[in-house]
Design a binder for these strands. Structure first.
Lengths: 256, 256
DNA sequence: CGCATTGTTGAAATGAATCAAAACTTGTGG
DNA sequence: CCACAAGTTTTGATTCATTTCAACAATGCG
């Protein structure tokens, strides 16, 4: 089932095609859920969207989906699993700039810049759909879809701004609480939260790279949050026993 | 000349109209410089742009140009002076999210979100041009201008990402050095740098709010940078005696 | 001239990083 | 099915960067 020399290397780049019809439907469904939560798209909108989805690829944790400096050719739609945008400091420190959940385009804004200033890397195993830049541009001709795409991008930008505030102005506990709130809120939007619990396969190391803290400190903060009864996190499952109290601590309010 | 009860209050909001022809020309010139540095626009492009500029307003330091939660009606083009986008923490701490220099739109992305998640505030005295949302949408019909606007927005986003890296991954000295490099690089793009020197009217308090550091620490770091011969900063003038060495320290590279 | 803002200094307190090592998971191959 | 390797979580001790508090000097403005 695996090619030889497989391993867990970070920069691994083998892309396995998974063009079965089930995954394809899943891709379109998750994208729709993201772009059109109020279900205002008509049949033609949905058809156009589904036609824009080209190949589907499975990826493994650590796999690089696109590299800093690459030309922006095709957009990548996350279908299952979690990825991130990241930049590196010369010291070799990786900083996660944004987290891409199912339904997210890994490189919004399309081809406005000649080359990207960040890499996209898988944080877990999963699969992604390719959306060629020209298909995307085609979609923008359709008013309803263009609006949804622009809104998604605007939300993306709002999240970046929130990250800036989070990184610069909040102490570690609040910072991590905020990140968790954000992720769960976004997972809920694409139907991946049941009650107040969801799959949460990110390691503490990853949380550290996203919050600009050390992994050790993240560990201690998580213990604090657990002890305060604000989160339950184990075996890849995350639960908020008292969402309101956690959101108050984090100063989190879901964006409109 | 001033209305009574004027003072220096942060939330001051009196807007003085300055619709003289000189300021108007300055507005168009600085916007062109920003959108079309390679001067590829034709006469019609430039005409459309100049027609989109509505009223011009003078602002004072500290004045609020638009508030968090406001609906996004008209875009604000900074013509002279410096402004910022900022968010507040419940503790009352203000965090600067982005710095708006002459030529920048204070709220890019237009009306994709119902209400903004940040405020826009003047950091110095200056003046701004209003660009009604509908004029902006009109401009987007023109391919050359639409491209330039999208590119400007993409650059804006790239700078936000760089801020995230800067805030999360770089120690104070590098962080401040990086911010200074960014600002001077952007000021140069709009012709406000002569040699390696420029006007620099931002207080250390403002630098602190932009970098997530305390004003005291910013002060000490600036002294370090001065002592190392990397910057000269006094009386509102900033100079880089050795730009390359500063950029190396900051890991700064101007975006393409 | 006086008052407000900005820049500067020192000492003490603290949040978070680092280093090092152990316990625990998880997947893998024998 | 067990044993091993690799990654992940946890713990403790120590160091370091940065904040905070407080006070004072310089600067600019009305």
């Amino acid at each position: 089932m695996r090619s030889p020399g497989d391993g867990n290397a970070r920069a691994d780049n083998g892309a396995r095609l998974v063009n079965d019809i089930g995954t394809r439907l899943e891709a379109i469904s998750v994208w729709l859920r993201k772009l059109d939560p109020e279900a205002t798209f008509d049949a033609r909108d949905r058809k156009l969207l589904s036609e824009a989805v080209a190949d589907l690829h499975a990826f493994r944790a650590g796999q690089v989906l696109s590299n800093e400096g690459d030309g922006v050719g095709t957009a990548v739609l996350i279908v299952r699993g979690i990825a991130c945008r990241s930049k590196e400091t010369l010291g070799g420190r990786r900083q996660i700039i944004a987290i891409c959940l199912p339904g997210d385009l890994s490189e919004p804004g399309g081809a406005a810049l000649e080359k990207t200033d960040y890499s996209v890397q898988a944080l877990t195993a999963g699969c992604a759909a390719l959306v060629p830049a020209r298909s995307l541009r085609g979609l923008e001709k359709r008013e309803s879809i263009a609006f949804a795409l622009r809104r998604a991008e605007a939300r993306d930008n709002a999240i970046s701004r929130e990250w800036i505030l989070n990184l610069a102005a909040r102490p570690a506990k609040e910072r991590i609480a905020h990140l968790l709130c954000e992720l769960v809120s976004r997972l809920r939007q694409v139907g991946l939260v049941r009650g107040n619990a969801c799959e949460f396969p990110l390691s503490q190391q990853v949380l550290a790279e996203a919050t600009g803290l050390s992994a050790v400190h993240v560990n201690r903060i998580l213990q604090d949050l657990r002890a305060a009864g604000l989160i339950r996190l184990q075996a890849g499952k995350l639960e908020f026993p008292d969402p309101l109290r956690l959101e108050a601590l984090a100063e989190f309010s879901p964006l409109v």
